[in-house]
Design a protein around this nucleic acid. Sequence first.
DNA 1: GTCAACGCTTTGTCCGGACATAAGGACTTC
DNA 2: GAAGTCCTTATGTCCGGACAAAGCGTTGAC
Lengths: 297, 297
Amino acid sequence: MILTCRYAPYVPQREPPHAPGPGSDHVPDNGSVTGPKQAPGPRADDRPPPRHRDLRLAVDRASPVPLYFQLARQLEAAIESGTLAPGSLLGNEIELAARLGLSRPTVRQAIQSLVDKGLLVRRRGVGTQVVHSHVARPLELSSLYDDLLAAGQHPSTRVLQNARGPAPAAVAAALGLPESCQVAVVHRLRLTHGEPMAYLCNYLPCDLLEPATPELEATGLYALMRHHGITLHSAEQTVGARAATAEESRLLAEPAGAALLTMQRTTYDDRGRAIEFGSHLYRASRYTFEFRLLVRA
Amino acid sequence: MILTCRYAPYVPQREPPHAPGPGSDHVPDNGSVTGPKQAPGPRADDRPPPRHRDLRLAVDRASPVPLYFQLARQLEAAIESGTLAPGSLLGNEIELAARLGLSRPTVRQAIQSLVDKGLLVRRRGVGTQVVHSHVARPLELSSLYDDLLAAGQHPSTRVLQNARGPAPAAVAAALGLPESCQVAVVHRLRLTHGEPMAYLCNYLPCDLLEPATPELEATGLYALMRHHGITLHSAEQTVGARAATAEESRLLAEPAGAALLTMQRTTYDDRGRAIEFGSHLYRASRYTFEFRLLVRA
DNA sequence: GTCAACGCTTTGTCCGGACATAAGGACTTC
DNA sequence: GAAGTCCTTATGTCCGGACAAAGCGTTGAC
């Protein structure tokens, strides 16, 4: 529900000769069922893409949820379920609007939201078609905790430290606070199936929120912040790597000097205030970042 | 111009006790000039945000560039230059439209595009205001090569291999091609200031493009693809870390077993075809990924 | 003095229409 | 047969208006 980024635990990727790790679960559906490709051509899409006039669509004008949103959700569901096949045309906007008893701007708004999500592509003179391949996958997930939960990884949290202290210079700078200002300092160990996965250090302006340890152990930091009425807006992340120190390797149950994935993040609310700075360490042997980028014309 | 991701070379981040690396260049402008905070309150924004009726805005109806886009660009420039101060209100849409001789939908379209970029926040009953802090920075840059170029890092490329060969299983799967299909295989070493920075292995369907070595040494892969009429649409990336093998450490001039940042990417064009698979290795000591995430309500 | 009701401001949603422009095919011409 | 031209189709841009709903301050009653 939150950020357009997806954390993917447990993707073993070794193979020293720098061969690409197993992209494994990545099986584009390029007609491998319907038989072999039809010989030449650029590839695949040579058959005229089908049209979909017979899609079950309807909006409820009594509902408080906006019409364009109702339509967008139905289209998205049709795409994910495969009812709207990848590559198929959507039928022109005018006709679609007439069929639903909506105006064209409303239909366009619905379509545009899916274009922004990368599910549809519009080309003038041609029409709007469903982007094929890289199937329906949850593209935007939320916090690490929620992701792990959804992935059935049984996440848990051990709070190593939860106190108030002076902000280190770099933290103060990231949060826009005066040097040595008091902040809430939270050190946590995130486990999956009881095994350590990441070491998380977070700093929060203490006039904003001072998380209670039981809360921290029961859920993720983002859920906790939302629960306290903070609306997240954006985050800036920096991802890198380095070798583990002795203490870090002990905490994370990795061999000394193992490669770790590092992530630092500053999160902002909808007023632009920095509400959190985090410095995280992940076991590279069990964890990767996965995300999707869209071109912005 | 391309993806909403930014590659940031040369960010030393050590400090073993897992202190946050220097976020350094990150200096939010929270009224540290106008004096100390006015005591309590949530923080900062207590003074009524200023309004901007006196902004120099004008559109050229003769120009072929869309009106909403002209307006959006001018607003963006005003925000980046500081003319529109962070936190300031934009003045209501109706008035803005009247002042410019535009209709409200057009003005809304311009504003919406900036909201999507994360530069503005709208709240009904209140108005549209500029997101403050995390100043004007290039948020969406393009390929590694272009980024390095823009950062004044003097990038260069050494092509280690450029041939046609059978696709490894994982590559074929990622590209949606049959097993052992022929693909263009490109191995490159990316240097900055003459020093190795990354080792790049890329695979392209050979019915799409077979890059010439001189081209590869002169520019980036994305620029080359665009130049050949391919329109990039989206990419899926996986970022991880692991220790370098003997050969890798030699190529990248790193000590044996050094931590490397790994990145694998599948790129799609606007038809949804996979057009490239890359497996990259970066020197973690000189390179990090930096990106910005927006919440999607 | 506290709290609810009201009203103002501003964005959110939706409509109907108009013309411009790009893509692609069909047709004509050379 | 190859080239250019025209036409159809569909999205892109833009307009003017209308009402709904959320935020917030003010007013009023208790």
